[in-house]
Amino acid sequence: MVMPVARHRHHHRDVDPPELASGERGPQHAQRRPNNSAPATGRDRSMAKRVLPRLTVDNRFFWESGADGKLRLLQCRDCETFVHPPYPVCHACLSDRLEPQVVVGTGTVDTYTVNYQKWRPDLDVPYVIARIAIDGAGDVILTSNVVGCPAEEVRIGDKVRVVFERQDDVYLPLFEKVA
């Protein structure tokens, strides 16, 4: 998922005083929430239509494979390395013998950020952008959103599982915390 890069001015008058995200963090980790925002709740809120990826011969399987609820990644048939983002050649052994493989669909939040910027008028904020280390897939890390819980409840190390959001013929892999 490619996130837009923008230059913007900080409008501090639109922001509450800093609030601590949890009792165990110090003031240097305080998070600010705009006055008009509500906690992110993921699938139970109406998310704006997302910008969809451009489908290619190399990545179509990834974006369409969620139709059956399974996450698939390319795996090299010669050295068994997982390759993501999809690419026609294995980065480990340069083999072109790659094929989509179902992976377990669980992972761990490697790092994250909470976005409060309303990039589009129909975008609900705040929302979590996270790097998810995929279980059983070597060094593969997906950048996605953590949904289904308030943004303030997401932590590094949280266990998550994939859920798919369908838009047109694309199934976007999002993640929710495992209870």
Rank of each mutant, 00 (worst) to 15 (best):
W119F: 13
D14F: 09
M3K: 06
G66E: 03
R13A: 13
D158Q: 11
R50K: 09
G42T: 01
R54G: 04
G26F: 01
D139T: 13
V140Y: 06
P4S: 08
K159D: 09
H8W: 04
P126F: 00
G66V: 12
F175L: 04
R120K: 10
Y127G: 00
F61T: 02
C149T: 11
G26M: 07
Q28K: 07
L172I: 14
A67T: 13
V51Q: 10
L20E: 04
D122W: 07
L20S: 14
H8T: 14
L52T: 10
V103R: 07
G23V: 05
S95K: 06
K177N: 04
P85E: 12
C76H: 08
V160I: 09
V146F: 01
L123N: 03
V160F: 10
P27N: 10
H91C: 06
V178M: 15
E19D: 02
D122S: 11
D16E: 12
V104R: 15
D58A: 13
R97M: 06
K70P: 00
K118N: 09
Y112R: 03
W119R: 08
P18H: 09
L123C: 02
S37V: 08
V109S: 10
I141A: 06
D16R: 15
P173V: 07
R166H: 12
P100F: 13
E19P: 02
V57N: 10
H8M: 15
F61A: 03
W119V: 12
L174V: 01
P100A: 14
D96M: 10
G105S: 13
I156M: 06
L94D: 01
P85W: 14
Y127N: 02
D14G: 05
D78L: 06
I129W: 00
T81F: 03
T143N: 12
L94E: 03
W63D: 02
F62W: 12
K177D: 02
L94M: 09
V160W: 05
N115V: 11
K159P: 01
P88L: 11
A151M: 01
I141E: 11
V146H: 04
L55Y: 11
H12M: 05
H8D: 13
R7I: 13
